[in-house]
Design a protein around this nucleic acid. Structure first.
Lengths: 251, 251
DNA sequence: CTTTCGTAATCTGCATACAGTATACAGACT
DNA sequence: AGTCTGTATACTGTATGCAGATTACGAAAG
């Protein structure tokens, strides 16, 4: 009898290993930042966060490292961690890079996508349009994100996926308070994009995606110019940040 | 008397604040990995590293986090850290992304470069060609890296700079053992690139950079196909890595 | 001789402790 | 009153300790 192999590749792979605390702290803090409970520029005191989340400083520190490299917080050696306050031009720069990377994703996807992939894209288009008709912002945003993610996935380039994912999460943060909705126009462009990908029309797919993301970028710029109020990102934080909090700890 | 200012902006800025240990550990380990003293796939035991570098486990752990997000090591929760073993296709993917980002850098640089910037580029071209004539590989590689870095810098997009820097350090690692030298051809292309940038010919600058990096990529692919021996990257590491070392610790 | 199970050693994850440094407040001096 | 200086306090950086999990080794059974 050959050494009996474990039923290999059986559906559920690997036992669910307890997610490291640092990951959960990372998630929690990311959400706190996105929801503005931790304001841009705010000083993050490790011991406070530890107490707030009910863990020790160690996982907090590790999470801060990750948040730092992901661009969510700025780590100033010896001074502590501060919630990243995105400069307006930084958002624009992020969108510019995203435009390039997503365009390339579309190009690559068009060269090797199969019917299965196209089906998934079409399904997401349908979902998005349905959400549009139903005036369901939540669903529209998620369908949009999922569509873009899928295109990147279909590019077959793992590195590209990683980078785009990084950018997207930050872009989403900056966008959130602006409620970015280009709606109808956007979904028409998505449909065209999927068509081009299905035809294997590389140049066209790349062009459409590029213009699509560039239009999003323009829309952002416009919103910033128009109603700069309400956004209030990076409210002119004092250049030299005080490490210590102004008010003594209440309680 | 106005409050007497300290002689401001005087040559030596700021006292050198002690660089955090984690940064130095990061640097040290990066070099150990690049120099192959830490082999791809190797299990990195925190306590061993701590002893080797003469610090405690804490800064080691923090450095490992950073190395992980930068793609130098793989962190498997509960199992430990392993030196990243780049798959051949991963190198190709990195080069593909680099091609896109550097092409965009060149496009942007062409739209806003001044004479000062062009001068710097020309100087680097001269240096590179001199190194080429002198058969000085070291100098050629560094001039090449510096030129590409400068183009990215001239793009005026900080985000772009960060991403390209990330990619470049990894690409350099993968390339090192292959001694990438496209030499003459490469520097001719550089010169053309700088010309296009100076003319402000955006399309041409982007095209040249794209073809330039794509050629580098092709050269890499070819080297891999031809003499796959000698490179030996990622010598077929067992898929399931053993955490524990085979041999007991000597002594 | 091969396979299986138990035990011990090792390593990671997390918590806590300690030291050095920066900030803030208060008193002294001009 | 304004400015400077000394001291207390808070926070970061680093080290150490402990518990749970995982692996390697060896003895026992087939």
């Amino acid at each position: 009898m050959p050494p009996r192999e474990l039923p290999q590749q059986t559906g559920a792979r690997r036992i669910d290993r307890p997610v490291p605390l640092r990951e959960r702290v990372y998630q929690a803090m990311q959400e706190l930042i996105i929801s503005r409970q931790l304001a841009p520029g705010q000083h993050l005191v490790e011991s406070e966060l530890a107490e707030m989340l009910g863990v020790s400083r160690q996982p907090i520190r590790e999470a801060l490292q990750l948040l730092n490299t992901a661009g969510w917080v700025d780590l100033q050696p010896g001074y502590g961690a501060f919630v990243h306050a995105p400069a307006p031009e930084e958002v624009d720069q992020l969108l510019a890079v995203r435009a390039v990377l997503e365009s390339e994703s579309a190009r690559l996807a068009s060269t090797l996508v199969g019917t299965e992939g196209v089906d998934r894209l079409r399904k997401l288009c349908t979902e998005g349009e349905a959400a549009l008709d139903a005036d369901n912002t939540e669903g529209m945003v998620s369908a949009n994100a999922e569509l873009h993610r899928t295109v990147t996935e279909l590019s077959g380039n793992q590195v590209l996926m990683d980078f785009v994912a990084q950018i997207d999460s930050r872009v989403q943060w900056y966008f959130t308070p602006i409620a970015h909705v280009r709606g109808q126009e956007s979904w028409r462009e998505h449909a065209e994009l999927v068509d081009a990908i299905e035809r294997g029309d590389t140049e066209e797919a790349g062009r459409i995606m590029r213009e699509h993301t560039e239009r999003t970028r323009k829309a952002y710029q416009k919103q910033v110019e128009d109603g700069a109020e309400g956004t209030e990102h990076a409210e002119p934080q004092p250049q030299v940040r005080s490490r210590r909090r102004r008010t003594a700890r209440s309680q």
